[in-house]
Simulated scan of single mutants.
Amino acid sequence: MLSSAATFSFFLAIGSVIRNDALLPPHLQAAQMQFLPPLVRSRAEGAMLIRARWEAEKARRTAVAA
């Protein structure tokens, strides 16, 4: 029973470390996200970004192959 409790405590401690590794406390992160403008792009802008990335990838592959 003690080994089960120790294992459970160990995983609980790992979870709390993972949750608290942010640079800002959660209440400050929430305030920061509330005041930042949302990053919203249109479909056309998204498509242009994807095409540009594809072209850059094609150019990089052809440069490596040559």
Rank of each mutant, 00 (worst) to 15 (best):
A65H: 04
R61Y: 06
L24N: 08
M33G: 02
F11I: 08
L39S: 07
I18Y: 10
M33W: 05
R19L: 15
A6Q: 13
T62I: 07
P26G: 02
L2S: 11
V64C: 05
S3M: 05
A59C: 03
L28A: 12
R61E: 11
M48Y: 00
R61K: 14
L23Y: 11
H27E: 08
L24K: 09
M33T: 00
S4W: 11
A63D: 02
A63T: 01
I14A: 12
Q32C: 08
V64Y: 13
L2A: 13
D21Q: 14
L2Y: 11
A47Q: 07
Q32K: 11
E45R: 07
R19Q: 10
Q34Y: 07
E55I: 01
E45W: 03
A47G: 01
S42G: 10
F8G: 07
A52G: 05
E55T: 02
A59Q: 15
R19A: 14
A13F: 14
V64R: 15
M1I: 03
T62W: 09
L36R: 13
H27N: 10
A52M: 03
L24V: 08
G46I: 00
P26T: 03
H27C: 03
A47S: 09
Q32R: 14
H27I: 04
F11V: 07
I50A: 07
S16T: 10
S16Y: 14
A56V: 00
L2C: 08
W54V: 00
R43Y: 06
F8I: 09
T62G: 03
E55C: 03
V17R: 11
S3C: 08
L23Q: 06
P37V: 02
A65N: 06
T7E: 14
L36W: 08
A30S: 08
M1D: 04
G46W: 01
R43Q: 10
A30F: 04
S9C: 11
A66N: 10
L39G: 03
A22C: 10
R51E: 06
E55K: 07
R51N: 12
R51S: 10
A66G: 12
L36Y: 06
A63V: 00
S42F: 01
F10D: 04
L2T: 07
R60P: 01
Q34A: 15
M1W: 11
R43L: 09
L12K: 14
S42H: 05
A56C: 04
A6F: 06
L28S: 06
V40E: 01
L12W: 14
F35R: 12
D21W: 13
L49F: 04
R19M: 13
V64P: 01
M1Y: 09
A66E: 09
D21K: 12
R41Y: 04
P25Q: 06
A66W: 05
L12R: 15
A5L: 13
P26N: 08
I18N: 04
R43G: 06
A30H: 07
P25A: 06
S16F: 15
A44S: 13
L2V: 06
S3P: 00
R41L: 06
H27S: 11
R19T: 09
P25N: 03
M33A: 13
A6Y: 02
E57M: 12
P25L: 07
M48D: 03
P26M: 02
S4N: 14
L36M: 14
A5R: 15
A22Q: 13
L49T: 02
